[in-house]
Computed example of a mutant assay.
Amino acid sequence: MLISSYKDTTFLGRFPYSEGLDEFGMAGKGIIANHDPESWKFNRKFFNQAILSSNFNDEAIKWVNKLFKELEGYWKLLSNSTSHNNLQDNENDWSLEIDLSTWAHGFMCDMIIVLTTGNRFYSMASYYNKISPVNVTHSDALIEDSEKFIEGINTHVLGVTYFMFLSPFLRHHMPFIKDRVKSIAKNRDYLFERIDTIIKKRRKEIEETPVGTELRHHMLTSLIIANTERDVNNVKTFGDDLLRPMTDAEI
């Protein structure tokens, strides 16, 4: 049913209404799990506007290069600390056995967070500190306990299946399952609270920035300033609902 609803369109498919997703707080929000056509159209407009801009693409290219250099730096430090290689004497001659999947996961987390919020997350640094005898510190991290936040995101994504495929009776009364569902719901509340704090913090920063000052080109800023006097997008869509700014909940 889901596939047949969008097989003849280039738009991203949407899940149909689900009582479980409604209970989980996802129904009617965002894009993928949004069964409300008007809300979906509104959110999709600003999402596309944010990620398809040339400034956003330039920012993505810049951060890919910057984060890869940071990743390579961690690998070199690990190679130097686990062997007798002197990287200062032979900078290009070093080797290291790594868990590529874990590093790739950290790279993607750092990339996604910096492009969506404009702030650093340091997921790779967190993993480096786990396996290195010498730790690195970063005072400008978006979230202090980044490991907990990353684990919370993973739990949230996997937890969606409990609300999509299990009946209300199983979710609320089946032993073991009901405890897991409560844990997933508690994790959801933690994530939403942290994300709401990030949005409000960035909105306040923008409000305190003089109008006309160039803002950083990342998704959160684009969504906050959309349809405001700071909006750098010159293409406007007619329709009263599509011309209003986004609320924190919609973001």
Rank of each mutant, 00 (worst) to 15 (best):
L78M: 15
F11R: 15
S95F: 08
E151W: 01
N86C: 12
T9R: 08
K236S: 13
L220E: 07
N86K: 13
I61H: 13
R44S: 10
P16T: 00
M26E: 08
A27E: 09
G212E: 10
V136K: 12
W63C: 09
S83G: 00
I98H: 07
R188D: 14
T213L: 07
P16G: 05
R171F: 04
F42G: 06
K7C: 08
R202H: 01
D241L: 12
D22E: 11
F238C: 12
L2Q: 13
C109Y: 03
N129Y: 05
F149D: 13
E59N: 12
V232A: 01
I31P: 10
F24G: 08
L191D: 14
R244G: 01
M219Q: 09
N34L: 15
V134Q: 07
K7R: 10
C109L: 08
I153E: 03
T228W: 02
W75F: 12
F11C: 12
K178H: 02
I3Y: 10
P210E: 11
I51V: 14
K186W: 04
F149P: 12
S132D: 08
T228H: 04
V235T: 14
I51D: 04
I184G: 06
D89Q: 13
V64A: 09
I61T: 11
V64G: 07
L77R: 13
R171K: 05
Y17P: 05
I31L: 14
E214P: 03
Q49C: 03
Q49G: 10
E208T: 14
V134H: 06
Q49I: 00
T237H: 05
T137K: 06
S79C: 04
K182E: 14
F163C: 03
L158Q: 06
K236A: 10
L142F: 07
L166R: 02
P16N: 07
N119A: 11
H35P: 14
L115T: 07
N227L: 02
M1W: 03
M108W: 07
E147Q: 12
K130S: 14
N234F: 00
S123Q: 10
